[in-house]
Simulated assay, not measured.
Amino acid sequence: MSNSILYIITVIIWGSTWIAINYQLGEVAAEVSIVYRFGLAALVMFAYCRFKKLPLSFSAKQHLQLLAFGLTLFGCNYYLLYNAQTYINSALTSIAFSTLMIVNILNARLWFKTRIPSQVYLGAALGLVGIITLFWPQISNVEFADNTLLGLGLCFIGVLFASTGNMISIKNQHNNMPVLPATAWGMLYGCLFMLVVALVQGQEFNFSYTLPYISSLLYLSIFGSVIAFGCYLTLLARIGAHKASYTTIMFPAVAVVISSVVEGFTWDNYTFIGLGLMLAGNLVVLANPGILKRFSFSRLKTREV
């Protein structure tokens, strides 16, 4: 697939998973739901790799790297984010998680000495201001009590784990480890890690036989994990973590559109301004640098005249 298609698929799917996750919280413990999600996702991914005859064998050293990949991206990251949502609302969670782009920029520089164009910083700033504006009515009256600070702290730590997983994925691909087989093993290791966490905590492995829980689990496993991660992790190596991670800023835009249809969300000035800034930031980040330079040069000439 082209980078544009991969990007659009990632944004649309992950932008809709915020609603699906709400149906996973409640009767079944978050840790157990994560085990179900990535256990099913890993099973589907392995089956697809086997069907396509993709290589699934890796060396012991590579498995250690895949273990770290799975624990950071599919284990610790989701464990912290699911638990964060028990302390803060989805608006604050979205804003906190959108900082993944900033952390990825720093980590790409640290891990791979990636030179980050100035347009990426500008686009990131526009996007972050846009997402804060979008959710301003929901966060303007938030009191930063102990629970709120705890939720934000869990979210930010989850972002650090997610970014580390992103860097490991890029390293995997630099070492010629195919994306889908590596992701299958990573999901399996993440699932096993969460299984251990749930057992240590004494969580009950119950199941909710309701349509909302089962349908959201299937959606999160197949679309939110297998398809979206396959697209996103491919983008990481193709266009860089600093650009691919702008998808995390675009997720709320999709969530707002879906919420307008499903939950009757009413648009106001904050919605229009916030979405406008997020889209502008998206265009700046993904634009060809040559276009921006020509635009700046043409403006400079106009001023001189």
Rank of each mutant, 00 (worst) to 15 (best):
I13C: 08
L67W: 12
K61Q: 13
G127I: 10
I132W: 01
F207K: 02
P252S: 09
W14D: 08
P181S: 05
M167A: 06
L128C: 06
N269I: 10
A125W: 01
G39A: 07
R50I: 12
F229D: 00
A84Q: 03
F97Q: 11
V262T: 14
F135N: 09
Y121C: 09
A184E: 06
N176Y: 10
A30G: 04
F295Y: 04
G202A: 08
P178S: 05
A47N: 05
N104S: 15
R294F: 00
K293V: 00
Y48C: 08
L218H: 07
L220K: 11
L220A: 09
K293E: 05
N269D: 06
G281F: 01
Q24R: 09
G190C: 09
G158R: 03
S59I: 01
Y36T: 07
C76P: 01
P212K: 07
L81R: 00
T247N: 15
S90M: 02
L300W: 09
A47V: 12
L180F: 10
G224H: 12
A280G: 14
V254S: 06
N176V: 01
L218K: 04
S98E: 02
V262M: 15
I214S: 05
A42H: 08
P178E: 02
L56D: 11
S169K: 08
L286P: 03
L40N: 09
S259M: 07
L6Q: 07
A30K: 06
E31P: 04
K61N: 10
F207Y: 07
S169F: 03
T86R: 03
L81H: 04
I249Y: 11
H242N: 15
W267S: 04
G15Q: 10
S57W: 11
V305L: 13
T210K: 02
I102P: 01
Q138T: 10
C49S: 13
N282V: 04
L106I: 12
L300K: 09
N77R: 04
V254K: 10
F295E: 00
T234M: 04
A60I: 08
G165S: 11
G158A: 02
C155Y: 00
I105Q: 01
I34Q: 02
Y7K: 07
F135L: 13
T302G: 10
L199W: 08
K61E: 06
A280H: 07
P137T: 14
W14P: 03
G151F: 08
C191D: 03
L275N: 11
A124S: 14
Q203I: 03
L106E: 02
L100P: 01
L110I: 15
S208Q: 09
F69V: 12
F265K: 05
I227F: 07
L160Q: 02
F229W: 08
F223M: 15
R299D: 05
F46Q: 11
L211F: 06
L236E: 05
Y189C: 11
T148N: 07
G75N: 08
K293R: 09
G274C: 13
I258E: 04
H63M: 09
L236Y: 15
V257G: 03
L220M: 13
L292I: 08
K243A: 13
G276E: 05
A29M: 02
S259E: 10
G240A: 12
S259N: 10
A41M: 09
C76E: 00
G276M: 05
